[in-house]
Design a protein around this nucleic acid. Structure first.
Length: 693
DNA sequence: AATCGCTCGCTTTTT
DNA sequence: GCGAGCGATT
């Protein structure tokens, strides 16, 4: 974020570069040793990261040890950025830059939780070698139990695995009872409350038997651990200061952790912007930040950062107008001195194909004008919204990197390899084992289950693996597989080497398993390169599930790291970032708000904030695309609701003065097409058909 | 017991 | 346009 720039060396001078509110936020209660609970309301582009980095630097200068500082950010990328800035701030005038600055307790809630739990595992009765299940693994385990409990083959359909997990996760993260969650968020599953409760108990037992924690456990075990008086004293004093970024996106469970760590709020700082709260779907509640100040006695100090250094005045005015139509919010109005610049544009195009064409044309024009591709971003509500554009970019040879959506890690072949690795390090992990074993030709769910049962029943180690009964024709393959697992788990096999062995074993299987084996093989090689950068298998696995590589690249092979490339990103993944030019795709009702999210007033407000987040990513140029016509492929019953899409409801007519309305292709071009009367007839016919699609 | 192929139902955002 | 699930086939 573009805060005031130069950073002189001495503490006093350095702080002079901050504006008064930022300075207040960076220093409040430090010098006098009060360390009161502090709430920093930081609007978009107000130099939040810089301010927080300054506060960390100030704390360190006042003698707080780095290892006594817990810094909770939304992603590890944000944590790294913070570390970098603090290190730069602390670079002494003599030039002895503190390169080695360590903030060992910085990262996401989940990451820090995992780290703490490994350390204190002994005190809370869990195995320090636990493995962590990502969402898909958790859903698979849920599915296994769902079948075991005979819940899958009922007259009336029982909720799907993902729904079951969603309900479970919601209960944990919102700290509300099952009945209430069902009533409020999953009303169509209410009739299954008893069965769900049974299923969730089985799920918890299974995780414990397998030494597996899921994402929610990392928080839940953490908060429960703090209920033990001895541990809360130990851990509470160990961390004298806890700073939390993006506080508006925390949930009740996370707020509970903070309350347990710092009951009186001393040493606790939270930073956030209620207008940018966009994670309610995973349990975040904007109440956390709205109610923060009042939960302490005396109340928390409050500082608001309102000067925006990022966007031009017209962009900021439009964004402010959009968010002003929301419900409850902190009083806050962003202002900027970046006068000039054009109005944000609302660009009407015929359909998604034209939208792709228009975006490509504009991107290229801006690059011609000297703006690097990397300074331009295309944002969208849902990952698949960019499909057309991706094809067009590919056709025109424009490199791009996409953030959000289907991840590298979710690809089946990547999951396969990781399952083998995970299983070899924790043979009790049934989900991993189930997947790994079935990679062998001739072994299906039945044999896999038998093998896993045998292993679970016998306490002995992996030597048993080799002797498992498998179908005769798989004999040799099985032996090779058992050896591979031994190799992977052995302490005598050096780290990246073990992974290479695994890849050598796996790659030949691709031909049989999947279409497009060549592309998948390339992914596996990329994974191997990544694995080599971690010190050992455990670290690799943990970081891969908690902090997966977040971007996927269109280019196969080595990523276009030092080249120039366009950024495509979901709005969610764009959080905290900024670009000189931003284009938002599909600014139409049905996409934004997503028609899946129009159930409640809160859900709609969250979609509004999503639009606000997208708009405030832009420094100089902002375009919102409005495809007029949508080919909605699966639309049961309700006919043409989205065939002709309207402008998003978040920009009603009275806000149009903040935008410049355009259409593409430009008029001259369009006129050339128009005289043909047959064209209209074709459109009409298509729309008649679309009504029933 | 594994696997192929068909149909039905659903389709967001992510640690 | 995709996966989960089911029934027929090897």
């Amino acid at each position: 974020m573009s805060a005031p720039c130069a950073e002189p060396a001495t503490g006093e001078d350095r702080l002079a570069t901050l504006n008064p509110a930022q300075r207040q936020a960076a220093t409040a209660g430090v010098a006098d040793g009060r360390h009161p609970p502090l709430l920093i309301i930081a609007g978009a582009g107000t130099g939040k990261t810089s301010t927080l980095a300054h506060r960390v630097a100030v704390l360190l200068e006042h003698g707080v040890r780095p290892e006594a500082l817990m810094l909770l950010t939304f992603s590890r990328r944000a944590a790294d950025e913070m570390k970098r800035r603090v290190a730069r701030l602390l670079a002494a005038p003599t030039g002895s830059a503190e390169r080695g600055l360590q903030l060992p307790w910085s990262g996401t809630f989940h990451g820090v939780g995992a780290q703490l739990l490994r350390e204190y595992a002994g005190c809370v009765g869990i195995d320090p070698g636990f493995t962590i299940h990502d969402r898909e693994d958790s859903a698979d385990l849920m599915n296994l139990l769902r079948h075991e409990h005979g819940l899958s083959a009922r007259q009336r359909r029982f909720p799907q695995k993902a729904t079951c997990l969603g309900i479970y996760s919601s209960v944990i993260n919102t700290c509300r009872p099952l009945g209430e969650v069902l009533q409020h968020s999953f009303p169509w599953c209410r009739e299954w409350e008893t069965e769900l409760r049974r299923l969730f108990l089985a799920y918890v037992e299974a995780k414990q038997a397998q030494q597996v924690l899921d994402y929610d456990d990392l928080l839940l075990y953490w908060v429960r651990m703090l209920e033990a008086p001895a541990l809360v004293t130990e851990i509470g004093t160990r961390f004298s200061h806890v700073l939390v970024d993006e506080y508006q996106d925390t949930n009740r469970l996370q707020a509970g952790i903070l309350r347990a760590l710092k009951p009186d709020g001393r040493g606790l700082t939270v930073v956030g912007d209620d207008a940018q709260s966009i994670y309610a779907f995973r349990g975040a509640t904007v109440r956390n930040i709205l109610d923060f100040a009042g939960q302490f006695e005396p109340a928390a100090e409050r500082v608001a950062l309102e000067r925006n250094y990022r966007s031009t005045a017209p962009i900021l005015a439009a964004a402010n107008a959009v968010i002003s139509l929301a419900g409850e919010a902190f009083e806050k109005s962003l202002w900027t001195e970046r006068d000039g610049g054009r109005l944000p544009a609302l660009i009407s195009v015929r359909d998604e194909a034209d939208q792709a064409g228009c975006v490509v044309e504009q991107v290229l024009a801006r690059r011609e004008a000297g703006m690097r591709l990397k300074s331009q971003a295309v944002l969208f509500r849902a990952a698949h919204h960019s499909a057309r554009l991706e094809i067009e970019l590919g056709r025109r040879n424009i490199p791009f990197v996409k953030y959000g959506g289907l991840r590298f890690l979710e690809a089946a072949h990547v999951k396969d390899v990781l399952a083998v690795l995970r299983w070899s390090h924790n043979l009790r992990d049934r989900v991993a084992g189930f997947r790994a074993i079935q990679l062998l030709a001739g072994i299906g769910p039945r044999s896999a289950a038998t093998i896993l049962d045998n292993l679970a029943a016998s306490p002995a180690g992996p030597s048993l693996l080799r002797e498992q009964p498998v179908p005769a024709h798989t004999g040799n393959n099985w032996r090779a597989f058992a050896e591979l697992v031994d190799t992977c788990r052995s302490d005598y096999t050096a780290w990246p080497a073990a992974f290479d062995r695994l890849c050598d074993w796996y790659l030949p299987l691709l031909d049989r398993l999947y279409p497009e084996p060549a592309m998948r093989a390339a992914d596996i090689r990329q994974l191997a390169a990544l694995a080599a950068t971690y010190p050992d298998a455990r670290r690799f696995l943990t970081e891969m599930t908690l902090d997966p590589p977040e971007a996927t690249s269109a280019e196969a092979g080595p990523g276009p790291l030092d080249e120039d490339y366009l950024i495509l990103s979901t709005i969610h993944s764009a959080k905290g970032q900024e670009w000189a030019a931003v284009t938002l795709l599909n600014a139409v009702d049905g996409c934004l708000p997503s028609d899946l999210a129009t159930g409640s007033a809160e859900a709609i407000d969250e979609e509004r904030r999503l639009l606000y987040v997208a708009m405030t990513r832009a420094r100089n140029e902002l375009d919102l695309m409005l495809p007029q016509r949508f080919y909605v492929t699966h639309q049961a019953g309700l006919g043409d609701r989205h065939v002709y899409a309207g402008r998003t409801r978040f920009i009603p007519n009275r806000l149009l003065k903040h935008f410049d309305q355009q259409s593409w292709p430009p008029a001259a071009h369009a006129a050339a097409q128009h005289p043909d009367p047959r064209r209209a007839a074709v459109d009409l016919a298509a729309s008649m058909r679309d009504m029933w699609r």
